[in-house]
Nucleic acid binder design. Structure first.
Length: 196
DNA sequence: ACTACGATCCAA
DNA sequence: TGGATCGTAGTA
């Protein structure tokens, strides 16, 4: 009986960039249960399971990349596995993970992560703007590699979420292509954003 | 330069 | 339901 190899903190299993190199909707669903890790400047580390996401693709009128490459959404057209962070409504930031092969735009919006809230309304990470504020994520993190554990923000493999635990619905806060069922969230999790 | 709008959040 | 608040992109 041999002892299983345990990777140390610095080389804990990040999801590889190939994980994101496939259709955006597939990646969105597969991201549920994976862990978003934030290492702050002072050394503190926060990590929480992703519990709510939305998919955005190049042929999707609600997507920033619809209509071509612009300065803001440039990273969406690059290789998969990088962070796309944008500023919205004059006061919030939103975090996305770039999907699809290099040259094809696509991204998954991280809408909520589990921060262990015991009750509804108590979470500080139940919404795309709120979680970025809590994790101190802003545009300076646009373009960082989320498949690299040496970064101050990255994603490592978490637990598998069964289909029976997943709820599928239309996306929140958009007016175009509002009928697409591209929002995925974990049922009964206290950190999933309220509305709908 | 000027304007309209937005992948949000919170108070009322 | 409406206001805060400002970068981005389109128009002139």
């Amino acid at each position: 009986m041999s002892i299983a190899y345990r990777p140390d903190q610095s080389e804990q299993e990040c999801l590889p960039s190939s994980f994101y190199d496939r259709p955006t909707v597939d990646v969105a669903r597969a991201l549920l249960g994976q862990r978003l890790v934030r290492r702050f400047k002072d050394g503190r580390i926060f990590s929480g399971a992703i519990v709510e996401v939305e998919a955005y693709t190049a042929d999707d009128p609600a997507c920033h990349a619809f209509g071509g490459k612009k300065q803001r959404c440039e990273v969406m057209f690059g290789p998969p596995g990088y962070a796309y962070v944008y500023f919205i409504y004059g006061m919030y930031h939103c975090l996305n993970v770039v999907t699809e092969s290099d040259g094809i735009a696509g991204a998954v919006l991280i809408r909520a992560i589990d921060d262990g809230a015991e009750a509804r309304g108590k979470s500080k990470t139940d919404g795309p703007g709120k979680l970025c504020r809590f994790l101190d994520i802003d545009r300076t993190m646009n373009g960082i590699a989320l498949f690299d554990a040496k970064q101050e923000l990255y994603i490592q493999s978490g637990r598998t979420i069964k289909n029976r635990e997943v709820e599928i619905s239309t996306r929140i806060g958009i007016t175009k292509a509002a009928d697409r069922l591209w929002r995925f969230h974990v049922k009964d999790n206290h950190s999933v954003s309220r509305r709908k």
